[in-house]
Nucleic acid binder design. Structure first.
Lengths: 193, 193, 193, 193
DNA sequence: CATGAATGAGATTTCATTCAT
DNA sequence: GATGAATGAAATCTCATTCAT
């Protein structure tokens, strides 16, 4: 089980850094301290390793997202927690979240591909979560009136953009999460007074 | 010159859709209605074609960005125009802008690579442009006081996220640009009393 | 077309001598005076080369068999011609006929496989041809009364056995064809007396 | 000894069905309910297992053939018994006889190979047995005068063809053995009176 | 006896690239 | 300008075999 974990770790790191096609089985096994054929002992092949990693990652990701649903703070706190969770995730496992958010655009064309399916599922989950937030937030007068579908699209783009930025190590500012949260709060939450 | 343009077009489409490594010279030349060796008549090889496309795209991109500098509306209008320009670009040439914003993370590790250089240049340009906007906007009391560096990072993430979303055809809402602009305006521009 | 023919010839010889699995693409291309990848220029792969050879061979084989149908000698002469044709074929293209008669028992399990289909087609053709011969030969009193289905099975086994023996160079007797024909004649044709 | 027998059985079945090269050690051990390394406990390797099977099979085969020699019926009954024995063998152990009669054309090139040696030995045995039959049968006036060498070749081809046909499950007629025997009898045995 | 884990050798296949025409 | 034919290099994968346990 030890070496299998090494293969997975190496796969996560290399797939995240280079993409699926540019990562060779030799690189992965070398990084795991093994020879090439042993990848085929633990997995059916390169593709199954990738699939395995992606599925595992998405499982973790969806598990975290599910737990957000069950908390019951104010609407905006839900959004805050969503942003928070993504930053938390990217802090704990930068390569995994990068994979989950950014992988395989090449594959998005084939909707049967497991990669496309997960990306789609993630998008639908976020849409459902945020739509619900905005809907009830506007109704309860916590939020100002905004076009819901478009605002949801914008928030998703923002979160994905922030995660990608981090995953690619293009930015590493400590306070950016708070800034993002405040930015959204000012835009959405009605001024008490 | 005609066939060369066909090669470039095919390259843009395929590199954007599949990435550099997953795109083969056969695919490109077939889509251009040619055979493989003719790619080597027009370009030194696959790599030079990619470089050529990326440079051309970034030239167009930077040209548009430069023209934004010379306009002298209010600070927020500058940001609005920046967002606008990206949506305009993604509308006119969806594959090019997707390439410019999202390509070759695999290459980002090698800072000598032209791809990494352009991405870096884009980032620096956006940082400089937005920093200047926020700086003077805050100073002139048009904007509320926000942490500049972080807000700049957030705005870049948002723009990249929006462009990526469109490039991948994950979203196609008509009013999202206006929603994004208003979202930012509410967050940044001081309420005239 | 020259080198493609060389590949085909090498394929015929090697597949006949060693079987499909034991023959490597390197052997084939080397024997054809080429390097390995060129096999993939002319064919989709090793499997397609094999399929191509087998189909071509069976086409030739079936063409010869068809021409036997149109001749109208006595019943026994039809059988004589059938035996003759197989010896002629094995003389002209020993490897091809060996392939046609003996290949790919491993594949016979999958009835969708083109190899199994051709073998099946050959068998059915021979059954139909010989059944017709015996049927009408017995009716017309040229032949003695024999169990038809079983005699057909026997004659097919005999022909296949003779061809295999030759294809494997286990026997090379000049007069064996005549001996076979006379053997069958004595067994089938009524004594004119 | 139990598991060793399972390995042998699996080997017989798979080698007969797929040939030596196309059968993997994994298939064999899986079918025997074991894992790969245990093959190496019981045998030196795949090759030795094959050799072992082939030798055992040929031993049984030769033993049966030897016992035919010692019976002393008429000449034709000897041939009848030979045919009978092969049908008996193919009925009792279809895979073994198929292996004995049809294996490893790939190996026939190397005359040192044990496979080629056995096939050669079988052929020589049959030649000697049948030559003796025909020789004395003709001399004693039981048989008509036929070219001996060629008729022997024909009978061997016939027997091999019948066995192969059965081994490959291409035919399964109940009365074919009798038909074959009568076919030969009519061709060889002098009409009494 | 048996297995989980690993490997060296080698097979098939892909692909960017070249070259003669 | 363009192509048919070919190739070197390398990638994925298979398989008989080994070894520690």
């Amino acid at each position: 089980m030890n070496k299998k974990q090494d293969l997975i770790k190496a796969g996560i790191r290399l797939f995240a850094a280079q993409g699926f096609d540019s990562t060779t089985t030799l690189q992965i096994t070398k990084e795991a301290g093994l020879t090439e054929p042993s990848l085929y002992y633990h997995f059916q092949g390169k593709h199954e390793l990738f699939t395995y990693i992606l599925n595992t990652t998405f499982e973790k990701y969806f598990a975290r997202m599910e737990s957000l649903k069950n908390e019951t703070p104010s609407r905006f706190e839900k959004i805050e927690n969503l942003i928070d969770m993504h930053f938390q995730f990217v802090y704990e496992m930068p390569d995994e979240i990068y994979l989950a958010v950014s992988t395989c655009p090449a594959r998005l064309k084939d909707p049967e591909d497991m990669c496309a399916k997960n990306i789609q599922k993630q998008r639908l989950w976020l849409i459902s979560f945020l739509t619900d937030c905005l809907d009830t937030g506007i109704e309860s007068n916590e939020f100002i009136k905004v076009p819901i579908e478009e605002t949801v699209g914008l928030l998703i783009a923002m979160i994905n953009g922030l995660v990608r930025q981090r995953g690619l190590h293009l930015e590493n500012l400590i306070g950016i999460k708070e800034t993002a949260v405040e930015f959204c709060r000012r835009s959405l939450v009605k001024n008490k007074h």
